[in-house]
């Protein structure tokens, strides 16, 4: 059997540190450098991470394929598998297979303006998209990055995003619901409040991507709709239980679609049209 889609590939944890209190950053790479350089994926895709004896679970990729050789994840400690992952140290080996899912339709974004809206943990998959577009800056129009977290201490990749603020070819806006540090230099308020800063949007030529906690979607999408962006140009990534990643185990099924193969990136039209999606 040449290619067993279920076979985990051993990868070494090369870096790990806490992004915030219960979310940890993991940087992994295949054992062989040659293989590491072959890794290919799209922003918005995910990998199945496998711990022998514990099980497998899907995780969004946070790194960008434009920086080859490694994979990055931001993982929240929330279940049995993540609990065990948090016990692992640098240089330990885990199993990884993928990439799976559709990912963002990067080709359609070409020459278009892009609004990336993030809430909380949604920064994990959308960081991949952000870094990808920045690495291929001339292929895209204006890029707006709107990130809202509850508190400064809950903002993922805070330092990285702060540094990106100095780029002139990126409109980055960071906000927190509440500043409990007294040292926060950016906006305070909900992510929806940042939309007033979006100027001269040409809705037909703009794509919006959203990822965040379920409560956020409705309000953010209302704002995007107000800008006049067509429903099929609003994209979001969804979460489901998955055991295979390849449309077989059935756990992520919604109507006629498998979140793992047909998603996890869906348009707002998909969501409206296919009941049960959110």
């Amino acid at each position: 059997m040449a290619n067993n889609v279920y076979l985990p590939e051993p990868m070494r944890i090369v870096r790990r540190y806490d992004l915030i209190d219960d979310v940890r950053f993991f940087q992994v790479r295949p054992l062989e450098m040659e293989r590491a350089l072959q890794l290919n994926y799209l922003p918005g895709q995910f990998m199945m991470v496998s711990l022998a004896g514990v099980g497998e679970a899907p995780f969004s990729i946070s790194s960008t394929p434009s920086r080859p050789g490694l994979l990055e994840f931001g993982i929240r400690k929330v279940g049995i598998i993540t609990e065990e992952l948090f016990k692992l140290k640098e240089n330990e080996v885990i199993g990884v297979r993928g990439p799976f899912g559709n990912g963002f339709p990067i080709d359609k974004f070409e020459k278009k303006d892009l609004i990336i809206v993030v809430g909380g943990l949604g920064a994990v998959p959308l960081r991949s998209l952000l870094l990808y577009t920045l690495d291929n800056r001339d292929r895209f129009g204006r890029i707006f990055f709107l990130y809202g977290a509850r508190r400064p201490a809950e903002m993922l990749f805070r330092r990285e995003f702060m540094e990106l603020k100095s780029r002139e070819d990126l409109h980055s806006m960071l906000t927190v619901d509440k500043d409990d540090t007294g040292r926060w230099t950016e906006q305070v308020g909900l992510v929806t409040a940042l939309f007033k800063n979006l100027k001269d949007i040409d809705p037909q030529n703009t794509y919006a991507t959203v990822c965040g906690p379920p409560v956020m979607y409705k309000f953010v999408i209302d704002e995007i709709i107000k800008l006049g962006i067509p429903k099929h140009q609003i994209l979001m990534t969804l979460e489901r239980r998955m055991h295979c990643g390849v449309g077989k185990c059935g756990h992520c099924v919604i109507g006629s679609i498998y979140t793992c193969m047909d998603g996890p990136v869906f348009s707002y039209w998909d969501v409206m049209h296919m009941k049960d999606l959110i």
């Binding site: 022998a52 004896g53 514990v54 099980g55 497998e56 055991h243 295979c244 077989k248 185990c249 059935g250 756990h251």
Partner: peptide
């Protein structure tokens, strides 16, 4: 009906399964 579940079974005394 094709749906299935997965579980890892290990041995109590060694890391094989």
């Amino acid at each position: 009906c094709p749906c299935y579940n997965m579980s890892d079974q290990i041995r109590p005394s060694q890391f094989t399964g």
